[in-house]
Measured scan of single mutants.
Amino acid sequence: KELVLVLYDYQEKSPRELTVKKGDILTLLNSTNKDWWKIEVNGRQGFVPAAYLKKL
């Protein structure tokens, strides 16, 4: 499993997105899109802007 660090808080703006908090370490599911990465948070899957995340 690949992990990502959340660099900035992000509030979901659609049902396909997820809310994340700065400092969270989460599972990366897909990073093929350069702008939006798919991650998992508490069993939910969704997208967060790639600029808000850093691969560990």
Rank of each mutant, 00 (worst) to 15 (best):
L53S: 00
K55M: 14
L56I: 13
N42R: 09
K22T: 07
P15R: 08
S31A: 14
Y52K: 05
D35P: 02
S31T: 10
A50T: 07
W37T: 01
K22H: 07
V41T: 11
V41N: 13
G46V: 06
L53T: 01
T32W: 09
E2S: 13
V41K: 15
V48F: 02
L29H: 07
K21N: 08
E2K: 09
Q45L: 07
G46Q: 02
L28E: 01
L5R: 08
S31F: 07
W36Q: 04
V6I: 04
L5A: 06
I25K: 05
K22C: 07
P15E: 13
I39L: 15
L5G: 02
Y52T: 07
W37S: 02
K34F: 09
L7A: 03
D24R: 04
W37K: 01
N33M: 09
L18K: 03
L53M: 06
T32A: 13
L18E: 02
K38D: 04
I39T: 09
K34C: 09
N30T: 08
T27Y: 11
L26K: 02
K54F: 13
W36E: 05
F47V: 07
N33Y: 08
V20F: 04
V48R: 00
W36D: 02
N42Q: 11
R16N: 14
G23N: 06
A51H: 11
R44Q: 11
Q45P: 08
E17A: 08
I39A: 11
A50Q: 06
Y8A: 15
V48A: 05
E17R: 08
L7P: 00
K55P: 10
S14T: 12
Y8W: 13
V6G: 01
R16G: 14
L56Y: 11
V48I: 08
E12I: 11
K22L: 04
G46P: 01
D9A: 06
F47Q: 04
K21E: 06
L29A: 04
Y10A: 01
T27H: 15
T19R: 06
F47S: 03
E2C: 11
L29R: 04
E2V: 12
R44D: 06
K34Y: 09
E12M: 12
L5K: 06
V48Y: 02
Q45M: 12
K22A: 13
L5S: 04
K55C: 07
S14W: 08
Y52C: 07
L28G: 01
V20K: 00
Y10C: 01
E40I: 07
E40V: 08
P49W: 03
K1Y: 15
T19I: 04
L26C: 12
K21V: 10
N42T: 06
Q11P: 05
L56P: 02
Y8F: 15
K34V: 10
G23K: 02
A51G: 12
L28V: 07
S31P: 05
K21Q: 11
L28T: 01
A51I: 12
V48H: 01
R44N: 13
R16T: 11
V41Y: 15
